[in-house]
Design a protein around this nucleic acid. Structure first.
Lengths: 215, 215
DNA sequence: CCGCCCATCATCCGATCGGGGGATGCGTTT
DNA sequence: AAACGCATCCCCCGATCGGATGATGGGCGG
């Protein structure tokens, strides 16, 4: 809460120029902050962070070129001094946990009031964790939940169902293909969604490819 | 239509024992056919075909171990004498074209009447192409359609949408993320489905991974 | 200039999905 | 024996998707 000893330096990472401008304006017009630069992708963020050595990196997660989570992981792994504060649009984002596991210091929603943002950045600069209330509650429930299901292996049946899903097969067709009822197919899907940490078949297929379960 | 000069020899390939038994029984109880053996996967089919040298291979496309299409391609490539007759459950199968491109002589649905099956096998043995009416109509429309869209590259926007789909994002969320309307998102999806030759987002993601568009 | 592709938007509608419950049998592990 | 994971099945219901169709405007190459 002390005045302006030395300003907190920032790197803004977002693929939308509009958002970058908005954040830059917001922080430049407030005392105690200095925006060192911007980046529009994960890779660019890594470069800029290395070159500019900011105190805090404000990072959007969803970007075309290079995922934000990967960038965070890289920064953490290479022992960067910068704290990463994730700034995302929706709390429905499935990357909440991965981002924090990757080393993000905080996780805020973009619609947070200005003051909250400033406070969060100051906190992040000091290494304190800052979470949006919505994100925080999701976190605790996820942690409190029966361990990280997130790495449980799929059962043989679940893999079979998933493979058919990847081929565009409907639940009904899968049922006939495997000689089981559609209800059972849905149960398998619900279970494998939980294990993969996703909410729909498209994301399940993507995650399966990422983990080598498919392909 | 001549009596039984010399029987047509068969290899039955299907991962379901029930189906194999059914086909075997059907052909053994009919004059003019001899079932040489069975196989439960694509790889096994290739082995057996080499060992048994059947006139016709009755092949299911969807099998856990080793895809049927790959097996067909292998048989064709190695110049096997056998004609491959694809026997599948649904005409919605996205593998219709790949299978025929791979060298299948015919494509029938499993619910075809017995007589049609027999006729088809005889035709296949003579090298004549046999297609289910449903499959045939889909084929012509696919061929008549402006060339194989199947290899057209996705536009930048389409790739953006697809990437978000792979992360489990709903159409509405994608719309907000990209600052466009939900209707536009759906249009992009419809287009990229056509280009990838799929019918839903799960299959689109899978195909994209297979082709290196994602991942 | 005309056509073609891309991106954008819209409406309608049936089919499908995913989530919420809860329930049974059956092996394996503890 | 009890607990657990797995596979199987059922109901209900709102949300979402995908198909069909049509329209507009910008840009690029013939």
């Amino acid at each position: 809460m002390s005045p302006d000893a030395s300003p907190i330096t920032l790197l803004i990472v977002d693929d939308h120029p509009v958002v970058r401008d908005g954040l830059r304006g917001m922080f430049e017009s407030a005392p105690g902050f200095t925006v060192l630069g911007e980046a529009a992708s994960g890779e660019e963020a890594v470069e800029r962070a290395a070159a500019l050595d900011p105190d805090v990196v404000l990072m959007d997660l969803r970007m075309p070129g290079g995922g934000g989570v990967a960038a965070i992981a890289h920064l953490t792994r290479t022992g960067a001094r910068a704290r990463v504060l994730v700034l995302t649009t929706y709390d429905t984002d499935t990357d909440t946990l991965p981002a924090i596991e990757a080393g993000a210091t905080g996780y805020l929603l973009k619609d947070a009031p200005r003051d909250e943002l400033f406070t969060a950045v100051r906190a992040a600069a000091e290494g304190r964790t800052v979470l949006s209330p919505a994100v925080a509650s999701r976190l605790v429930s996820a942690v409190r939940a029966p361990g990280n299901e997130r790495n449980e292996p799929l059962s043989a049946r679940e893999r079979e169902v998933l493979a058919l899903v990847a081929r565009g097969t409907s639940n009904r067709e899968i049922a006939r293909e495997l000689f089981i009822s559609e209800a059972t197919v849905k149960t398998h899907l619900t279970h494998l969604y939980a294990k993969l940490g996703v909410n729909d078949r498209a994301a399940a297929v993507a995650t399966a490819y990422e983990r080598g379960i498919l392909g």
